[in-house]
Design a protein around this nucleic acid. Structure first.
Length: 323
RNA sequence: CGCGGGGUAGAGCAGUUGGCAGCUCGCCAGGCCCAUAACCUGGAGGCCGUGGGUUCAAAUCCCACCCCCGCAA
């Protein structure tokens, strides 16, 4: 390992990359010469122009920040920086091949799944949805494909039974920060050789949309419980219910935030699929198989609340059918 | 000026042709019962988000502001 610092550019947008960025900033073997992130965007209810989390972090350390609308436009400047390596974590833009080839050691990506499984954006959610017992972080050397580059390092993490996508995302973010410097150093020292991914085992998960959170009550309670965790905190699992005041509104969106499945010994003909009923004073919904006990929910325009509290003022909902 | 919902008892909600502030749950006391988280009776608990205005009279109508939330991003 040389005594000079590794000149590094960090590219990322969401807070997923923040722990990794911090670790690199503290590590004396790295010198972050620039951070590239998405442009500030209007966000929140007032549409206030807000910088991406990574930018806010970089500015604390007076690191130069670039925010190109398209990273391709920044090609020459990246070349001028003469970085030896580029780290990418959740940037939300495709990096063109010409840029990938600029740094001596190439571009390194932190990905939140055990590649080649779950290439793409919704990798964390996919692991929960598919009932995986483990997921992890894969450090790859990027090539022109989407998350297809050869693997430098991989580390696993257990998925706990109550893990939401949000919780898992955070754990993975920390895991990524832990293994990233190790992987890079070993790679630069020539101690590890990138291993090509087995494309035959690859799967791809596309970015989620709000609409993907719609619950299908015909599925089993076990599946829906998992679905709710996978959609939390975003896009969040939701269902549609008729409003009590049907004259003014047709329907309301009901977000389900936390639940537990329970195998109920009830007559199959007692409740219809999607029907809401009380079970031990708790809110329950009949699913295709078994029933789901709802613990926490949120009505459109309201704060999230425990289902017991919700019932106190909304018992009209009992007996209605969710679709 | 991005669109929209909301602030009423500890919690969740009703209550707009202005007219004594209600419901469910919880809480307190008593009763019933072998017993109870069940049931009955009684009770406490409110600046109706804030400040103005209209009115004999405002939770309700008008104006301004604060706070919370959904969509969107």
């Amino acid at each position: 390992m040389s005594h000079t610092k590794i000149k590094t550019i960090f590219i990322g947008t969401s807070d997923f990359g923040i722990p990794a960025l911090r670790v690199l900033l503290k590590d004396k073997q790295f010198e972050i010469i620039a951070v590239i992130t998405q442009p500030d965007k209007p966000t929140g209810r007032k549409q206030i122009l807000t910088p991406p989390p990574i930018k806010a972090e970089a500015e604390k350390y007076q690191i130069p920040v670039f925010q190109p609308g398209r990273i391709n436009n920044l090609k020459s400047q990246i070349a001028n920086l003469k970085s030896q390596i580029i780290i990418i974590a959740a940037y939300a833009q495709i990096i063109p091949e010409e840029i990938l080839n600029l740094p001596k050691y190439g571009c390194i990506n932190i990905h939140g799944s055990l590649l080649p499984k779950y290439r793409g954006a919704a990798c964390v959610q996919a692991a929960i949805l598919n009932n995986d017992k483990q997921t992890g972080i894969t450090i790859i050397k990027m090539d022109k494909g989407l998350d297809t580059g050869p693997i430098l390092w991989q580390d696993k993490i257990n998925i706990e039974s109550g893990d939401t996508a949000g919780a898992l995302y955070e754990k993975l973010s920390l895991l990524g920060a832990k293994i990233l410097p190790v992987a890079i150093k070993k790679y630069i020292a020539g101690e590890i050789k990138p291993i090509p991914q087995n494309n035959a085992k690859a799967s791809y998960v596309k970015r989620l949309k709000k609409q993907d959170g719609l619950i299908d009550w015909a599925k089993s309670a076990v599946e829906i419980e998992r679905f709710i965790r996978a959609m939390a905190p975003w896009p969040s699992a939701y269902t549609i219910t008729k409003n009590k005041k049907q004259k003014t509104k047709n329907s309301l969106m009901l977000k389900l935030l936390e639940s537990e499945h329970e195998i109920l010994q009830i007559n199959k003909n007692k409740y219809k699929i999607g029907e809401i009923f009380l079970y031990n004073n708790k809110l329950a919904v009949q699913c295709g198989k078994d029933a789901l006990i709802i613990k926490k929910l949120q009505l459109e325009g309201k704060k999230e609340m425990k289902s017991e509290d919700f019932i106190k003022g909304n018992n009209w909902i009992i007996g209605s059918i969710l679709k």
